[in-house]
Amino acid sequence: MAEHQHEPVPYKTFILIWVVLLVLTVVTIAVSRIQLDALNIWVALAIASIKSSLVVFIFMHLRQESKLFKIGLVTLLVIVAIFIGLTFTDVLYR
């Protein structure tokens, strides 16, 4: 067998991550009911980012993948940041 295959991730790990994701969902909803003005949206985005990292690294097995996959993800994030950042240099100063 030339193909390298991943070690199976135990069921327990996945279930634990699922519980954390549900807890974070409850936290997002709870925090969203408190008036924090502009901060609300940043807290929501921060929690969503934590949730997506859990999905990407554990559920999607990125943790087990080679460096190439991780470089790909960083590249994507940089592209999206440029995409959003450049748009806002226009939108905010109109």
């Binding site: 997002t28 969203s32 009911r33 969503a48 997506s52 999607m60």
Partner: peptide, 23 residues
């Protein structure tokens, strides 16, 4: 297929607070 399915989940993770939870 599972990777694709997780992407669908990822999009919803952002969509849900941004659309449903704005105060």
């Amino acid at each position: 297929s599972a990777l694709y399915w997780h992407l669908v989940d990822l999009v919803w993770i952002f969509l849900f607070p941004l659309y449903y939870l704005i105060l």
